[in-house]
């Protein structure tokens, strides 16, 4: 298999703080990799090393077969970077921003002009093209930022938290644009704090914690490791919780557990709607008063909990289904 991004034993420290520890990963050409982790886990440091902005203390990295330390300029010709904040010039118009970046990619005047017009059109910015960016909304800025990163039609695109701070419609629009780019054959590395985002977009996910890779796999593999969706039922009377848990388990919904606090009963529901229907039937038969009934998707917290075994403040780490046979 051909790899667009290869990192071998990348490490980087800032003073005493080790931001990256021996990071090794590879991304097949044409795929989308989601780099998932909480703030400060080393996602941005990884991106900065891979995009030649930061020199790793040790280790090697190659982008499209080119070494990031030895051939930085060649690497830069082949990558596009969209950072955490929209890195565009507020005082310039959208059109001017893109033309400036295109010129600095040395694409040639004609190519720049036609590419810029295409991207403005595709990113729904044609109408706003002649307005200063300071008048743009957050979503428009991010779209412009993404457009700028795609100007040179890069083989590898790095998107550092491209949707942080965006509302749902804008987030979905961004997802669509990222997918389109991958469909055109580009390799995309995307960092995110949201499991759902990685799930939606990525072919593979690498989970980082404290600068180390703690898990790697397809979204389905990762979610399976934390047990998929959970049904959470809160009973009015804490003394009834055990009985409700037993009823749910007996009805074959899954192995139900009572969380700390004693009123919340939690059960994995891998079987989808059928499991929810059985749960409703089980609860009806049991007859306790239920104050809350909800389906919850596994969150990044759940992944972390099950992967690191650390108690991240969640009450029922021990009863997490990822660590049980069910």
């Amino acid at each position: 298999m051909e790899y667009a991004i290869e990192a071998e034993g990348l490490s980087k420290s800032y003073g005493n703080h080790q931001a990256l520890k021996d990071l090794t990963m590879s991304v097949p050409t044409g795929s989308i990799l989601g780099l998932l982790g909480p703030n400060g886990c080393g996602k941005t440091t990884t991106v900065r090393c891979l995009t030649t902005l930061l020199k790793p203390d040790s280790g090697r990295a190659r982008i499209a077969g080119l070494d990031v330390v030895e051939q930085p300029k060649e690497v830069r010709r082949r990558i596009g970077l969209a950072g955490q904040y929209a890195a565009v010039d507020e005082r310039l118009t959208g059109l001017e921003n893109l033309r400036l970046i295109g010129t600095l990619y040395h694409l040639g005047r004609k190519t720049v002009h036609s590419r810029v017009d295409d991207l403005l059109e595709r990113f729904d910015l044609t109408e706003a093209a002649h307005r200063q960016v300071k008048t743009y909304s957050g979503g428009m800025r991010r779209r412009l930022d993404l457009a700028a990163s795609l100007l040179a039609d890069p083989a590898v695109v790095f998107l550092d938290e491209p949707t942080t701070g965006l509302d749902l419609p804008n987030r979905i629009a961004m997802w669509e644009l990222v997918r389109e780019q991958a469909a055109k054959g580009a390799t995309v590395l995307l960092t995110t704090q949201y499991l759902e985002e990685a799930d939606q977009l990525a072919d593979r996910i690498v989970v980082l914690a404290k600068g180390e890779v703690i898990a790697e796999g397809t979204p389905d593999e990762l979610k399976a490791s934390v047990g998929g969706e959970r049904l959470e039922v809160t009973v009015e009377d804490a003394s009834r919780a055990e009985a409700v848990a037993k009823a749910l388990t007996d009805w074959g919904v899954g192995t139900a557990t009572v969380g700390e606090g004693g009123r919340r009963v939690s059960v994995p529901v891998d079987a989808g709607m059928e499991a929810v229907a059985s749960a409703v039937a089980a609860l009806k038969g049991e007859g306790s008063r239920i104050t809350d009934f909800s389906l919850r998707k596994p969150t990044l917290d759940d992944v972390f909990l099950s992967l690191t075994g650390h108690d991240a403040g969640a009450p029922d780490a021990a009863s997490d289904p990822g660590t049980e046979e069910s």
Binding site: R48, T51, T52, L53, K73, E74, R76, R77, I79, L81, G83, Q84, Y85, A86, A87, V88, D89, I101, L104, Y105, H106, A148
Partner: peptide, 13 residues
């Protein structure tokens, strides 16, 4: 202070 410097530095300029 803003991300523009990073962008410039990621360009082959």
């Amino acid at each position: 202070g803003n991300g523009l410097m990073d962008r410039f530095r990621s360009l082959p300029m």
